[in-house]
Design a protein around this nucleic acid. Structure first.
Length: 269
DNA sequence: GCGACAG
DNA sequence: ATCTTGTCGC
């Protein structure tokens, strides 16, 4: 798949001011409401096909194609490796990846200008057209509501959601407990750090996709937000539904593994 | 000066 | 993101 909004393609050579200006334009072009054809409820993972169960419903037709995207770095960050894994009806239907030289360092709020090029290169190597992109990083939980997932989603104009392991900005409507119960979600509201949204606007959710029943250790929640063409509530539901026994939603978990695997091959031989 | 933030 | 063995817990 290729960019359809070339004017928004991340350019690492831009000045910081130009980057921030572009992000505002991207946020304007982004749609933080449900605007897609497929039925989110039909997204299925795992080979949960139990032929002995008469009550189960048979899948009619093909479910949506969901693609996970994740990055790894080589040469101490000099090169970014992006991996994409596309799933449909619980099966991997295509994989793609790309390695691109990084031009700028990591700067909070400007992540897409560091990693965006590698992601778009990987997506261009993907023949299939995904119905949804699951990107590692924030979507509209961002200072200008233009995080990595939003930037990528708008450039290729495909529904996208952002899944982050840490909160960039915004405030939970209630304190995140040390041990959030599995399945629970807490809204994240825009605060004074989110320049483009009115304070109090729900921009995402903390979602606990997995939790230990007991013990000393606990798992932290994921911070999910709309990237493009998906609402905050739907984003949380999709992520919860994509959890297949692991913290990360299955498409992202597989992309994560693919990125690490490619990285190794790139190092040793 | 203080605050502090994805990957 | 990345540097990294053993180790605590189910």
């Amino acid at each position: 798949m290729e960019p359809v909004r070339s004017e928004f393609v991340p350019d690492p050579s831009l000045s910081r001011e130009a980057m921030e200006s572009l992000q505002r334009d991207i946020a304007d072009a982004a749609v933080f409401d449900d605007d897609f054809d497929f039925d989110p409820a039909t997204i299925r993972f795992g080979s949960a096909v139990d032929l002995t169960d008469d009550t189960q419903q048979r899948l009619t037709g093909d479910g949506p194609i969901v693609a996970g995207v994740d990055q790894a770095f080589l040469d101490d960050g000099d090169r970014a490796l992006s991996a994409v894994v596309a799933l449909q009806n619980g099966d991997v239907v295509e994989r793609a990846h790309a390695v691109v030289d990084t031009e700028i360092p990591y700067i909070p709020g400007l992540l897409s200008f560091r990693e965006g090029g590698a992601i778009l290169a990987a997506l261009s190597n993907l023949a299939i057209e995904p119905d949804l992109l699951v990107v590692d990083g924030s979507g509209c939980i961002h200072f200008r509501e233009a995080g990595l997932a939003t930037h990528i989603g708008v450039v290729v104009d495909v529904p996208a959601i952002g899944v982050a392991k840490n909160l960039l900005c915004g405030t939970p409507t209630e304190p995140i407990p040390d041990r959030m119960p599995e399945g629970e979600r807490i809204p994240i509201e825009a605060d004074d750090r989110v320049e483009t949204a009115e304070t109090g606007t729900v921009i995402g959710h903390a979602v606990q996709t997995r939790q230990y029943d007991s013990g000393t250790t606990s798992i932290n929640p994921l911070y999910v937000s709309p990237g493009h063409r998906v609402s905050a509530v739907t984003t949380a539901s999709i992520v919860a539904q994509c959890a297949a026994g692991y913290k990360l939603p299955e498409p992202m978990r597989l992309a994560d593994r693919a990125a690490d695997r490619h990285k190794r091959e790139c190092l040793d031989g």
